[in-house]
Amino acid sequence: MSRFLVITSVPDFERRVRAAVTGSMHGEVQALPPEVLSGGPEDVFRRLVGEPPEVLLIGPGVPGIEALKFATVFDLQHPEVSLVLVTDPDPDLMLAAMQAGIRDVAEPNVDVAGLRGLLERSCLASASRRRGLSNPGEGDEPGRIIAVMSPKGGVGKTTVSTNLAVGLAKIAPMGVVIVDLDVQFGDVASGLLLEPEHSITEAVHGPAAQDTMVLKAFLTAHPSGLYALCAPRRPNEADYVTAEHISRLLRQLSHEFRYVVVDTAPGLGERNLAVLELATDAVWVCGMDIPSVRGLNAAFDVLRELQLVPDGRHVALNFADRRSGLSVQDVESTIGVPVDVVIPRSKTLPYSTNRGVPVLQDGARDAALKGLRKLVQRFDPQWAKAPQSKLHRRVVVS
C-alpha cells in the first residue's frame, strides 16, 4: 500500500523521504515529477499505482505559486489527504499555504528524522479526517479501550499486549495505539524494538494534555502500522503520572484511534483502576501455575465488588502446558469464569520478545501463534458478526 506521494524535482529529497519511511513506517512511497501539477488532481491520480495516498508532499523544486494553486483545488476535492509544502521559509507564503489547505510546511533541507516526525503527524491527521468523513454522524464515537492485565508479574503480559497490538494493526492499519502503563518498569519499547523520543510522562502534561494534535507528536510509529506511547526511561518519573492523567489520556486517544491497547503494571493500583473505569474490554493474562491462578481469582473478587469488570472479558491462559499439573478445567473452576484463549508454552515467543519483533509481526511458525491469532480475532468486528462466533467457548491444551 502506497501512503506517501512526493512531487519533486530534487532526487536527494525523494531519497530522504524514502529513508524516513523505510523500516519505521507502514506503507510505501511513490514519486512524480512537478509537471503533473499542471494537469490537476485528476492527472495525479491517473498516474498513481494502487490506493490514493494519505500524505502528499509538494516540493522542493516546485514553484510556490503553482504549488498553492494545485493545493487549493486538491484540498477541496480530497480533504482526507494531508498536504505538506516543502519550501524555503517565507511568512507571506506560510499564510497563503494555510489558506490553500496545506496542513504542514517543511524546509527543503529537513533531515530524515525531521521528515519521519512530519510524516507521522500527517498520517495521524489524515486518519482523523478520514474517520470524520466516513462517519459524519459518528465523529465522536470512541474506539475500544483494551486493558491487558494481570495481578502478578512474570506471566507474559507485555508479550501478549505487543502481539495483540500488532495483530490489530493488520485489521486497522494506523488505527491502533499501545500505551505502556507500567510507568516504572515498562517494556513495550524494547518489546517492539523502539527508541522513543518521548514518553507518557511528557504526554500527560503541558499542551498535549489539552490538544490531541499535540499529543500525537509524542507517539512513536512502529513498522507494523501501529503507534506506541512508551513508559519513561527513569522509574522515578512514575510519580508524575496520576490516575486522573490516565483517564484524560485514554479519552483523548479513544477519539483518535479504533483500538487503544493498554499494557498495565501488575496488580490493581490506582492507575489500573482508572483504566478499568473506561475500558470496553479487559484481557486477563494468567500463567498456568497456582499463584497466578489464585491471584486472578482474588482480583476478580475485588473487581466484582467495585463493579469494575468490563463487559468485554477475555481470559488468556499463557505458558499452557499439560505437564504443569493443572488443567484448563482446574483454572476455570478456581477463577470462576471460562478460559477463552490458550497460548501454549513456546520457545519462540521469549526469543521474539528479546529480539523486539512480536511473532505476529514476522509470522514465524510457532505453537503460540494460533492462540495469539484467536485473541486478536475476538476484537475483529467481522468475527463478532459471524454466526459461529461465541465469546466464551471451552478450550483445551493440546
Rank of each mutant, 00 (worst) to 15 (best):
T201I: 07
A203C: 10
V204P: 14
A209I: 05
Q210H: 14
V214Q: 15
L215P: 00
L215Y: 13
K216V: 09
K216H: 15
A217G: 13
L219A: 03
L219T: 10
T220V: 04
H222R: 14
H222S: 07
G225H: 01
G225V: 09
Y227D: 01
A228I: 00
C230G: 04
P232N: 08
R233V: 15
E237S: 05
T242C: 03
A243D: 04
I246N: 06
R251K: 14
L253K: 04
S254F: 02
S254C: 07
R258F: 14
Y259T: 03
V262Q: 09
D263Y: 09
D263G: 13
D263A: 07
T264D: 13
T264F: 09
T264Q: 09
T264V: 12
G267Y: 15
G267S: 04
L268C: 06
L273H: 03
A274L: 11
V275A: 09
D281F: 03
D281N: 03
A282W: 10
V285Y: 12
V285M: 09
M288P: 00
V293L: 06
V293Y: 01
V293G: 12
R294D: 04
R294M: 10
G295Y: 06
G295A: 08
N297C: 12
F300M: 12
V302G: 02
R304A: 04
E305L: 02
E305Q: 07
Q307A: 08
Q307F: 00
L308H: 05
L308F: 08
A316F: 06
D321M: 08
R323W: 15
G325Q: 05
L326W: 04
L326N: 03
V328W: 05
Q329P: 00
T334N: 12
P338R: 02
V341Y: 15
V341S: 08
I343G: 06
P344D: 09
P344L: 03
P344I: 02
